[in-house]
Design a protein around this nucleic acid. Structure first.
Lengths: 163, 163
DNA sequence: GTTTTAAGTCAGTCTTGTTGACATTCCAAT
DNA sequence: ATTGGAATGTCAACAAGACTGACTTAAAAC
């Protein structure tokens, strides 16, 4: 039942297997977002705020364009979210020193603390899942996800990974 | 670097590994929905319609309550979607013969054909990913996803799997 | 000096989710 | 036979978060 490429055991490519993967993605994504969602609700924020904060934390000083590419939304949509985060003093803008058209984004201490709360909650579930299944399954999990990404996002993902 | 539970090699549980998993889920889900979304746009439907059709196809004759539990939305939200699908003759209701309060849901031939289009597109990407990484990674992928689900959804998922 | 780029803003629309209130139907238990 | 509660459907109002399109400002690039 191993990777017998010679005999070409392709049972893992049946419609049934594919359907299971599709449904697993659907149900798992609900679990994936459930814990942060509960926290966000208390602060009257949404998933969009979480995503923005996550990547501003990951790439401190990113400019708006870069963040737009990572998030895959329009600037109008991101702007609405950023405005509230800035108004609430979770994010600050700094005008670029080299190119003064650019605005660089940073989390404030308050922003960092909320981001930490959210990522802790989300990581907790992920850690528990990892622990249950062991390292080999985790490696497989990541490989399939990476292979499912659009090529452009795959590059973005890899860049983030090595930074 | 294998599953050495004795030496407890827990490198796969680092914050970095968890963060990678989180970002992989985020980016992969975009890919996961991208192809069906493009098709749906042509028919002026949304993801909600796709999800409803998917599970009506999976569990023909399901009643509304069961579908609500699977989808995890309110009846008002589902009802709006069902109304358009019924109006467009993609879905039909049949009054329950045993309990006539219940409405059983079925795809019409037109509904089946659109569902087929959508699932083919989605499966195509999944199949390509599976093929790239091989059966062992696919098994790991599913195990992690299953472990990430809320317990109630995990049961729903397993029931669907064995039906 | 003109063009392009980065960012922000205003206005309007759409999908998809939410609450709350209420009506209908009908099974099941008293 | 009546009644309580469950399953379903519907109306109205609202909100988040996505979209398009048009436009401004500022600064860099050519």
């Amino acid at each position: 039942m191993q990777n017998d490429r010679t005999g070409e055991n392709l049972l893992f490519l049946t419609d049934e297997q594919l359907r299971q993967g599709i449904e697993a993605m659907f149900f798992a994504y609900r679990g994936f977002t459930a814990d942060p969602d509960r926290i966000l609700e208390k602060y009257k924020y949404g998933r969009a705020h979480h995503r923005a904060m996550h990547f501003i934390n990951r790439v401190p000083g990113t400019n708006v364009n870069n963040l737009l590419n990572i998030l895959g939304v329009t600037k109008q949509s991101l702007n609405r979210v950023l405005r509230t985060l800035i108004a609430d003093n979770l994010v600050i803008l700094k005008v670029g020193s080299k190119d003064r058209r650019e605005r660089h984004l940073y989390l404030t201490d308050i922003g960092k603390s909320l981001e930490k709360q959210l990522s802790t909650a989300q990581s907790h579930r992920m850690r528990e899942a990892y622990r249950q299944v062991g390292p080999d399954s985790v490696a497989g999990f990541k490989q399939v996800l990476e292979a499912m990404m659009d090529p452009k996002l795959q590059i973005t993902y890899k860049k983030l990974r090595n930074s």
